[in-house]
Design a protein around this nucleic acid. Structure first.
Lengths: 342, 342
DNA sequence: CTGTTAGCGCCTTCAG
DNA sequence: CTGAAGGCGCTAACAG
């Protein structure tokens, strides 16, 4: 299957009456070339419809112009905007995107190795749970940055205002008059889970309300997690009038679980999510949630990587979150809150 | 930035006391090697922690072991499962995924060129609107297959039972007793839009109901399209008791638009979607919709490509759709249907 | 079965 | 400013 390339630098060098080296120079813009020759080369490129072979270029230059993206195995709409952000930033720098998702137990590591074999210039690692040391070992000397994932080295992680956002969300509920607020939390060993829980706790503390562990359920960020957790609370019999879910997906699932029990949103219980995914504005009712600039976070991850790859000091913005009030929250209606039937 | 690779075939050839060619042979399994030497090579690989340079391998073999995926610029949860399907199939064959999204007017073509420069072994083109001829010109001799997009050459398109699905959906509404059914349609020049409209029309015809163009609104597949189209119908004053939307996203938007006007789902109007996206089961109410195996379609696209790349006769399954009845549909309640206030 | 020898297509010193 | 020459790391004939 060894198919030779149709037209190479040699062909266009011949056509333009220059040396291959010169062709390379005008194509890369790597060093000045006489206008005459430059024009000739460009003309030849057009005439022969030449397209550089990136594999050869990369091999010779030792620079793949490619960044790898490792995604969790889960299919979730959450990652869409991040992928787009990564891709947009890459395209702006004329870089390419190699994608691998982490399937199975050692999936994350295998995905990284795969990408490493392709000699990516950087790695964006989204989600996932591997420790810093494992990642460092796997990534060798290629720079990597974590998005929506834990990393002890804070300078390799795109940070977002999880605590602030969670505080805002909880505060909003508090302001409405709720005092018994359930928190459907993400995994505590995940920063997005832990920090949001902290924000929740902080808002409660600031309002002089004690943190009741029986109102906080740890689960995963997914739809199924939200559903199970909500049902567990409902079955537990603890009274509450509001729910703060760690993700919109959990919130959506919680709303359905609540409705299934005959509870109205926000009439009987208010619900706040986190992420402001596309569907949040179109749920019924439209979801009050915390907006998180996930697209921009993907972009920032790439900018960071590229800077490091060039040996520059990397940028590392910290992203803010903000509350988007829609229709899933309202003041508690006394006497209608959920109560145990036990 | 020319960084030499730490350890190469030569290093491990030296370590194992064989020739580089033999190293290559055991690593690729391309031709038999004595057990002794094979073991030595493997040991050396372990010892030196060798990782093959795929760029070099690809350049030498003329086979990139990479497939390109072109995605529309739109961020939509719809594509997630397809990407995962593509990726899963690729991984199973030890191939890699290069992704590019089509941004701007000439984005699709540019994305393809980008991927072509990387010498991808095949192209999965999702969505998009370029004609067969343009694609053929852009893709040259690399095989491509379209998913969820138009293509005159049916053998290069992954087909799904759009007509059947739409017929099922419409039939379901008809069975419930609805006769004035709005169809929020996708673009007629897109097979997914046109075929679903045809299915709608066929079901109507089979029931002896004439096709009323004022009940059919052509728009895009997106949330915004669904919302605008629904509002247009509502403003038009034409009475109806049910809506069949060409996608779940449109259905979700339609539900919100309907609710905003004080209409209950399914009390006042029934709504059916198409796609069975993840959120469909968790909407309020859970959405009756047509299931489409989008993950498997992504897989099939890759299988087709890989077969063609190997010179084998490609498989090209045709995918079936099925109706998933949930809670957004019910019999019409006489007298409560939407009527013009004009 | 195995080593030797050429490249794959491009880039990058190094002279000029 | 430009051409010649030598790799980048690996694989694919070709002889043994």
């Amino acid at each position: 299957m060894r198919r030779k390339q149709a037209v190479t630098v040699y062909d266009i060098a011949l056509e333009a009456g220059v040396s291959p080296a010169t062709v390379s120079r005008v194509l890369r813009g790597t060093s000045p070339v006489a206008h005459q020759k430059r024009a000739a080369v460009l003309a030849a490129v057009q005439a022969l419809n030449y397209r550089p072979n990136l594999m050869a270029r990369d091999l010779a230059s030792g620079d793949s112009h490619t960044v790898g993206l490792v995604l969790p195995d889960t299919v979730s709409s959450f990652w869409g905007p991040m992928v787009k952000g990564v891709e947009a930033a890459l395209r702006a720098h004329d870089y390419h995107l190699l994608m691998a998702s982490a399937e199975g137990s050692d999936g994350e590591q295998r995905a990284i190795e795969l990408l490493m074999n392709h000699h990516v210039d950087g790695l964006v690692i989204a989600g996932g749970t591997l420790g810093d040391d494992v990642l460092m070992a796997a990534a060798g000397d290629v720079p990597f940055v974590g998005v929506c994932r834990g990393l002890r080295h804070a300078e390799w992680r795109i940070e977002v205002g999880n605590r602030e956002g969670a505080r805002l969300a909880t505060q909003h509920l508090l302001d409405l008059g709720h005092t018994e607020i359930v928190h459907l939390a993400g995994p505590f060993d995940h920063p997005d889970g832990d920090e949001r829980r902290q924000g929740y706790a902080e808002a409660l503390a600031a309002a002089g309300i004690s943190y009741d562990p029986s109102l906080v359920i740890e689960t995963d960020f997914k739809i199924s997690g939200g559903k199970d957790a909500m049902n567990r609370v409902l079955d537990g019999g603890r009274a509450f009038t509001a729910v703060f879910a760690a993700t919109d997906q959990m919130a959506m699932a919680a709303i359905l679980a609540l409705r299934t029990r005959g509870l109205a949103i926000p009439g009987d219980v208010s619900v706040v999510g986190f992420d402001d995914e596309a569907f949040a504005a179109y749920c019924c009712p439209p979801l009050t949630t915390v907006q998180q600039p996930i697209f921009e976070m993907g972009q920032a991850a790439v900018e960071n990587l590229l800077a490091r790859h060039r040996g520059q000091t990397p940028t590392l913005p910290r992203f803010a979150t903000s509350l988007v009030v829609r229709e899933s929250t309202a003041p508690p209606s006394r006497g209608r809150a959920f109560q145990s039937r036990a």
